[in-house]
Design a binder for these strands. Structure first.
Length: 296
DNA sequence: AAAGCAAACAACCGCAATCTG
DNA sequence: TCAGATTGCGGTTGTTTGCTT
């Protein structure tokens, strides 16, 4: 039978939330803050399970939520990010301020996936005869049409950060998205050994040439050497990205301190890699270092 | 006006990752 | 170090809404 569902307890409400429940939950969170979902319903006097409260708050009651009217710009961004990331709704939502993963997922399933599939069918005649999903179920499990290019980023924990104090910190970008630093997955990394050649480092010619990051637990790894070999020295995007990361890190951590690179930051890197027709293959097991691979 | 159907979306579920004692 | 608790994520389902016949 498997384990019993979390909301199976008798006496708990299910289904649509009432205005009263919404008010109670909102007021409780205003006073006590988010978190501790398990005990929240009891303390707030709600006949709901903690999961249900969390979902309701995150998707509908939070004050900064934007609902409905997804703009063409947002739509375009969703499509691009989905191409890049697949069904990683929370990560996609992270790039769309005020939007929730649930809303984007629903929007994708009801609007975009079908449209994209139609476009695909039109552009590739061989698949024109392909069948539409017949059931609701089939529609929902539709994979990204670009799954072969999907990037799965993983957050990375840096052990050390070294920023040369001689380096003028003049970043080209402003970070438009500062996720709180308490939201990270930690992944160990191994230094790259095989996949990268020892061609001259791009960074030797970039303004970020002194920027070093040591990711290694046991051995040193310079980010420059990790990333340089596959890019020509003319890849300005890469050096801009380095400046962005430099700016980010220098604003948050001091020399030699631990810092954490979160998904958002990696995504920025990935987006730039993508524009260079490279992708990060991070589908490897946790603990493996992300490998650069040439996109086919 | 009512029935049937499909689209939209809110909510639930199970799993996996992460946290904590 | 490990087991149990907690949280977050993505897939799926159920209900509501709106359109068509």
């Amino acid at each position: 039978m498997g384990r019993s569902p979390c909301c199976a307890k008798e006496g708990l409400n299910r289904g649509a939330w009432t205005a009263l429940e919404d008010r109670d939950l909102t007021e409780y969170i205003k006073v006590h803050g988010e978190g501790r979902w398990r005990n929240l319903p009891q303390k707030a006097g709600l006949k709901r399970c903690g999961k249900s409260c969390r979902l309701r708050w995150l998707n509908y009651l939070r004050p900064d939520i934007k609902r409905g009217n997804i703009s063409p710009d947002e739509e375009e961004l969703i499509v691009k990010l989905h191409k890049l990331l697949g069904n990683r709704w929370s990560l996609i939502a992270g790039r769309l301020p005020g939007r929730t993963d649930n809303e984007i997922k629903n929007y994708w399933n009801t609007n975009l996936s079908k449209r994209i599939q139609d476009q695909e069918a039109r552009s590739s005649p061989s698949s024109a005869g392909g069948e539409e999903p017949k059931s609701k179920k089939a529609k929902n499990v539709m994979a990204s049409p670009f799954s072969h290019n999907v990037i799965r980023t993983k957050a990375a924990k840096c052990n050390k950060v070294f920023i040369n104090p001689q380096l003028p910190h003049k970043g080209l970008f402003q970070m438009d998205d500062h996720r709180p630093m308490d939201h990270h997955q930690h992944v160990d990394h191994r230094p790259d050994e095989n996949g990268l050649s020892s061609s001259p480092s791009l960074l030797e010619t970039s303004s970020s040439s002194e920027f070093l990051v040591d990711f290694g637990m046991n051995s040193d790894l310079c980010l420059a050497s990790l990333l340089s070999s596959k890019f020509s020295s003319g890849d300005h995007l890469f050096s801009e990205e380095m400046q962005l990361q430099e700016q980010y890190w220098s604003g948050n951590v001091g020399s030699g301190e631990d810092c954490v690179v979160d998904d958002q930051l990696q995504l920025n890197t990935v987006l730039n890699f993508q524009s260079l027709n490279y992708f990060l293959d991070a589908d490897a097991n946790q603990g493996d270092w992300l490998e650069l691979a040439e996109s086919s």
